[in-house]
C-alpha cells in the first residue's frame, strides 16, 4: 500500500481536533450509559412507563452507542464509501435474522401454551361469538 506523509503543521492541527473528537465520543457514550442506567433505576422505583416502551428506548440507545463506537472509535465514518458499504450491507442480514427468530420464539411460546397437555382446546372461543340465549 502507498503511504503518503503530510506536513508536520497539518498533523499538529489534526492532532488537536481528533483528540477532541475522541473525548467527545467518550462523553456521549458515557452520558447514554448513565441515562440508560438512570431510566432502569427510575423504572425499578416508580414503574413509570410500559415495559415494552422502556425496552424500545434501551434498544434504540444501544444502536446509537454502537454507531458512535463504529463510526468514531473504529474510524469507519472517515473511511471511503467502498469500505463502509462492504462492511455495513452484509450486516443488513441481521434485520431478517432478528425478526424471523424472535417471531419464531414467540410462536413457539404460544403453541406450547395452547397445545400443552391438559389444556382444553380453545373451549370458549365459539361461545363468545354467539348470542347468550337462543
Amino acid at each position: 500500500m502507498e503511504h503518503t506523509h503530510t506536513g508536520a503543521a497539518h498533523e499538529e492541527h489534526a492532532h488537536d481536533s481528533s483528540t477532541k473528537s475522541i473525548w467527545k465520543t467518550f462523553w456521549i457514550l458515557l452520558a447514554i450509559t448513565v441515562f440508560e442506567v438512570g431510566l432502569a433505576f427510575l423504572y425499578l422505583e416508580y414503574d413509570f412507563m410500559a415495559r415494552w416502551a422502556l425496552n424500545g428506548i434501551f434498544v434504540c440507545l444501544t444502536l446509537v452507542k454502537a454507531f458512535f463506537i463504529v463510526a468514531e472509535f473504529m474510524h469507519l465514518r472517515h473511511e471511503i464509501r467502498n469500505l463502509i458499504m462492504t462492511i455495513l450491507i452484509p450486516l443488513l442480514l441481521f434485520v431478517w435474522f432478528i425478526i424471523a427468530f424472535l417471531a419464531d420464539g414467540d410462536s413457539w411460546k404460544n403453541m406450547r401454551k395452547d397445545l400443552s397437555p391438559g389444556t382444553p382446546v380453545a373451549p370458549t372461543t365459539h361461545v363468545t361469538n354467539e348470542p347468550a340465549h337462543h
Binding site: 435474522f97 432478528i98 427468530f101 424472535l102 419464531d104 420464539g105 414467540d106 413457539w108 411460546k109 406450547r112 401454551k113
Partner: peptide, 12 residues
Amino acid sequence: LIAYGTIRFMSP
C-alpha cells in the same frame, strides 16, 4: 444473542 432472544421469547 439472537438464539438467546429466541429462547427468551419462547419462555413464558
